[in-house]
Simulated scan of single mutants.
Amino acid sequence: MRIRIQGTADSPVRAKERLDDLLRQWDQESSDVSSTSDTNNSEQNGYGQKGVDPVALTALVVSIPSAALAVLDIADRISKRRRAEQFLEHIRELSTQGVTITFASQDSAPEITALTPDQLLDRNTDE
């Protein structure tokens, strides 16, 4: 990955030194890090111009619905996991009172009390 650090006066140099230190901690080389000062003629290379990249903007707009759906899915999974934890706690409590609760299917299903909440949710979605 190549990165460019730009700023005024000696701020790019200090930023490059900090990044170099971080990369050394990660046992990486910093050969692809370059720093330039804004006092250079940045207009010539096009980096001083501001504008919106239409492709990047389109990609951002298109990715918003899928990101929102992912957040909703995670929130739903968290709430279902809490309910599964409560359900398993009740089943474990009942099993100490001599009650046996199993899955209705006759395959070699594990005992419900041995499952984690995530395993219970995954089994529920599989059926």
Rank of each mutant, 00 (worst) to 15 (best):
1 M>H: 13
1 M>A: 12
2 R>H: 13
4 R>E: 12
5 I>L: 15
9 A>T: 04
10 D>R: 05
10 D>N: 04
10 D>S: 14
12 P>V: 06
13 V>Q: 11
15 A>F: 08
16 K>Q: 14
17 E>T: 08
18 R>M: 14
22 L>P: 05
23 L>R: 11
25 Q>T: 07
25 Q>H: 10
29 E>S: 15
30 S>F: 02
31 S>Y: 09
31 S>Q: 06
32 D>P: 00
34 S>N: 06
34 S>C: 05
34 S>Y: 13
37 S>W: 01
38 D>G: 09
42 S>V: 11
44 Q>H: 07
44 Q>M: 06
48 G>R: 10
48 G>D: 09
49 Q>A: 13
49 Q>C: 03
49 Q>I: 06
51 G>K: 14
51 G>H: 11
51 G>T: 08
56 A>L: 13
56 A>D: 10
57 L>F: 15
57 L>C: 01
58 T>K: 12
59 A>R: 11
63 S>R: 14
64 I>N: 07
64 I>K: 14
64 I>F: 13
65 P>L: 01
66 S>C: 03
66 S>W: 10
68 A>H: 08
70 A>C: 03
71 V>M: 09
72 L>P: 01
72 L>H: 10
72 L>E: 13
73 D>M: 05
73 D>P: 01
75 A>P: 01
76 D>H: 12
80 K>T: 05
80 K>C: 02
83 R>H: 10
83 R>T: 07
85 E>T: 15
85 E>N: 06
85 E>V: 14
87 F>S: 05
88 L>N: 04
89 E>Q: 11
89 E>A: 02
90 H>R: 10
92 R>C: 03
94 L>F: 11
95 S>Y: 04
95 S>W: 00
98 G>Y: 00
99 V>D: 04
100 T>L: 03
100 T>H: 00
100 T>G: 00
101 I>T: 03
101 I>N: 05
103 F>Q: 02
105 S>I: 00
105 S>W: 05
107 D>F: 09
108 S>Q: 14
108 S>W: 09
109 A>F: 02
109 A>D: 04
110 P>T: 03
111 E>R: 06
113 T>P: 00
114 A>Q: 05
118 D>G: 07
120 L>C: 04
121 L>D: 05
122 D>K: 08
123 R>A: 04
123 R>L: 08
123 R>F: 03
123 R>H: 07
127 E>H: 09
